[in-house]
Computed example of a mutant assay.
Amino acid sequence: MTKIDIFSGFLGAGKTTLIKKLLTEAYKGEQVVLIENEFGEIGIDGGFLKEAGIEIREMNSGCICCSLVGDFGEALKEVIQKYSPDRIIIEPSGVGKLSDVIKAVQKVEGEVDIKLNSFTTVVDVTKCKMYMKNFGEFFSNQIEYAGTVILSRTDTPKATDDKVQAAVELIRSLNQTAAVITTPVEQLSGAKILDIMENNRSLEKELMEEETCPVCGGHHHDHHHHDHEHEHHHHHDHEECGCGHDHEHHHHHDHEECGCGHDHHHGHHHADEVFTSWGRETVKSFSREEIEQILNTLSTDESYGMILRAKGMVSSENGEWIYFDMVPGEADIRTGSPDYTGRLCVIGSKIDETKLAELFGI
């Protein structure tokens, strides 16, 4: 099975830099073939690729989106038959539509053993708004179809927090589910970037999977729903957790028994309380003291709702990253390596989302 990774992005967005990083840090030990289309672009240096043991197939017969039906499909099949690679990287022209490239790959899926593995779009944060205005159809398409969006130039003087956040919100207006990387890729390992591209696990999903059924110890698997402001709300219906019985999410139990002999009402969680989670992405920096104060407020001030859990990772003002994990009355705060963007998640009942946003200042 050959994995297909597609990297799109407008001219000069930083695709080449990203691919070179992945080739040296994440794809080592794999047989990799790069298919690139040089449409007025400077491709990855052939000498670099030879040193890395990478085969390269250039498509210089015009824009890749103009030759998708014939040449591209044949080129893909030829590459697989000749090299039997573990992975093929496709770097289409910056002016092509990502959806066209995906469709072109899908057309040959039945003929060769391939797997569409990831779709990543690189966006220059300083040009995002301008590109959206002037190249709406093509630019929007690259964002809409991406599984991961990487914001480049976020470490330049022009990239203020406000500008980065505005770019994230613009991207979120087109794509609710992609992982949006705002941390400069230089600060992330190639392995970390590849994991994000391939798995795109939200903080909410990780938290919900950590919460286990109090009766049997089994995990609940939640369904994710996204609203139009890129906050994430999860409402849990009756689900199986592994013990063979249907429970509602284990923070919302009736007084009745379900047949397994256990009373599923416990503590102070009542049947009319539906537990939800609130999540935000943020590029804002915090101090350790600010996080401590926020977590203390969540533990003691019931006006924010009945808080069961809070977890997150955010950048700090001194360049380090702060990781926190809180249950009422107890909080773990530590420093760690950069994550792909600042992320916050709060789980609880009757959450006041407006007040939570104000508390975190976002």
Results as ranks from 00 to 15, higher is better:
T2W: 05
S8N: 02
L11Q: 00
K15C: 07
T17N: 08
T17S: 13
L18C: 04
K20A: 15
T24Y: 06
V33H: 02
I35A: 07
E36W: 03
E41D: 08
L49V: 03
L49M: 10
L49T: 03
K50S: 14
A52D: 00
A52C: 01
E55Y: 00
M59F: 00
S61H: 04
S61Y: 04
G62W: 02
G62Y: 01
G62F: 02
C63W: 03
I64N: 00
S67Q: 11
V79T: 08
I80S: 09
P85I: 09
I90P: 04
E91H: 00
P92C: 03
P92Q: 00
G94L: 05
V95M: 15
K97W: 05
Q106T: 12
Q106E: 14
K107G: 15
L116T: 04
S118T: 08
V122G: 01
V122N: 02
D124N: 01
T126P: 13
K127N: 14
Y131I: 11
F139V: 08
S140H: 00
Q142Y: 03
E144P: 01
Y145F: 15
T148F: 06
I150T: 02
S152K: 01
T154C: 11
T154I: 09
P157E: 13
A159E: 09
T160H: 03
T160L: 08
T160F: 03
K163E: 12
V164M: 04
Q165P: 04
A166T: 10
A167C: 07
V168Y: 07
R172V: 10
L174M: 13
L174N: 05
I181F: 02
T183R: 01
T183N: 02
P184S: 06
P184T: 05
P184V: 06
V185G: 08
A191Y: 05
K192N: 15
L194M: 10
D195R: 05
M197V: 07
R201Y: 13
L203A: 02
E204V: 15
E210I: 06
E210Q: 05
T212R: 11
H225M: 14
H228Y: 14
E229T: 06
H230P: 11
H230C: 12
E231C: 06
H236W: 08
C241G: 05
G242N: 10
H245D: 15
H253C: 10
C258R: 12
G259K: 02
H262Y: 10
D263A: 06
H264G: 07
H268Q: 09
H268T: 10
H269Q: 13
A271I: 08
A271T: 05
E273H: 03
F275S: 12
T276E: 15
S287G: 07
R288H: 12
E289C: 06
E292W: 04
D301L: 09
S303M: 12
M306N: 12
I307W: 07
L308M: 14
K311G: 06
N318H: 04
N318I: 07
G319H: 00
G319W: 00
E320D: 09
E320M: 04
M326G: 05
P328H: 03
G329M: 07
R334P: 05
T335A: 00
T341R: 10
G342P: 10
G342E: 09
C345L: 14
I347Y: 02
S349A: 10
K350W: 15
K350A: 11
I351P: 09
D352Q: 11
T354M: 13
E358T: 08
L359G: 04
I362G: 04
